[in-house]
Nucleic acid binder design. Sequence first.
RNA 1: GCGCUGCUAGCUCAAUUGGCAGAGCAACUGACUCUUAAUCAGUGGGUUCUGGGUUCGAGUCCCAGGCGGCGCACCA
Length: 525
Amino acid sequence: MSDAPATDPSTPAAGAPRETGAERSEQERVRLDKRARILEGGGDPYPVSVPRTTTLAAVRERHAGLGAQAVTDDEVSVTGRVVFQRGRGKLFFAVLQEGDGTRLQVMLAQEARPDRGLPVGVGADALAAWKSDVDLGDHVSVTGRVVTSGTGELSVLAASWALASKALRPLPNLYEGAEMSEEARVRARYVDLVVRDQARQVVRARAAVVGALRSVLGGRGFLEVETPMLQTLHGGASARPFSTRSNAFDMELFLRIAPELFLKRCVVGGLEKVFEINRNFRNEGADSTHSPEFAMLEMYEAYGDYDSMAELTRDLVQASVRAVRETAPDLLLPEADELLAPWSQVSMYGSLSAAAGAVVTPRTPAEELLALAERVGMAVGDDAGDRGHGKLVEHLWEHLVVPTLSGPTFVRDFPVETSPLVRAHRSEPGVVEKWDLYVRGFELATGYSELVDPVVQRDRFVEQARLAAAGDDEAMQLDEDFLAAMETGMPPTGGVGMGVDRLLMALTGLGIRETVLFPLVRPGR
RNA sequence: GCGCUGCUAGCUCAAUUGGCAGAGCAACUGACUCUUAAUCAGUGGGUUCUGGGUUCGAGUCCCAGGCGGCGCACCA
């Protein structure tokens, strides 16, 4: 499959078998012994295939509404993971669960009792084999007729059964009220997905949302492209990058913090409506709304502007609400309805002035903003980059205005210093045509009327370089090839970036680590 | 990065003032042909995250480290 890994031979391979027994728990040793016993008896705990003619869900659908002790002539082979077992001597019950969480009971009778609704027995040996070999968590195949039990529970009455896969580790407590700890869920998502319905629903909701985004964009003539994740310069956003190294090229590379500069090259090349859904990497702090790698939708439309892109963004978010409502309605926050109602918009300087009780304009000196920050009790970082007009205005706005927002809100017209890729406002001096979309207190998306004047763009990059020299480690690098592209002629363009994880968060109220299948965690014990 | 807080059986948790390390589920043995978290009888299972220290005695107190959670800072 893959080339021989060039790993350090002194480090044991991850997941190396721990056969010594001493490191195994009692329960794991019991299961390993069962596996060995099955092999010794000529059985196969991991057969290449087992009988399977239908799914548990299909059986449930086909036989809904049967009365108690019904016997159908529908003979099926079903498979699933054993999640409950109820021994009853010569009549045995187990509950199987398949991938989507659907469960179905199976019954094993030692001997047939047609008079009691049990037309088939599996025999003493097969029943004893189940009891000695099958543990909670094992995958099994059961072949037999669809029946209902004396209490009306839809079941498959086994004529035969086969082990499909032996689980060597026990599942966690499956009973109600005994949830896995958050750490255990994240570290062993494969178990979380078996045990917790919400974990399964989140995966489905996410797939549905991403599908809805692609569908809406595709329907409007947008082309999906993939641009580099490994970049020689990091650009398109203000953030610290992860860096890595190419052996073949013998040079430093950066994991992208944004695809923006490449998608704009696409627009220059005539791909007038493009988008990309992919991962960005930012070497910043992690919390319930930030992850070092996160999924982003970026889209650009030639001859669009930040107003047209705001409308497109709203349509995409609303399509996502409907997608979750269809696939995982239980996950959808009641508050998500507000996303379907009209959205509001405020101007950054106007709403900040109102909240601060003092007029703040693009010409307000940084010293005044620092004084205002102190007055409202907002901490200001010591880096040079944190004490300029632009960042002060943005931070003051987040501090004073964000808590007062209700419902989805576009905040418009940002300071120019912090937005080096955005064009100046068409009529308001000192601000740029940029909005951020806030939903439920966090930034969900950002949209621009893109800067397309290569001379102004070069000036902005030079200013960023100056900030970097002054100690702002998030300032952008000067990208000559990107400027060359812009000098080739870029049409007026609107652009948007929207966090896909955050979109899920906005719809479900979950933290970012719950919307991602395998969030980064430190290696545990 | 800073502050607070947690880590005990496979899972979820308890353990009084520093004094025999426990429960439920899971596991093991046995009984049971209609159970729904089956029930009944019995049994086993612990490096109390790691390493030091104090003490007659440490899950508990102190120090250092590891890994979480929460808050703050930064970022989206």
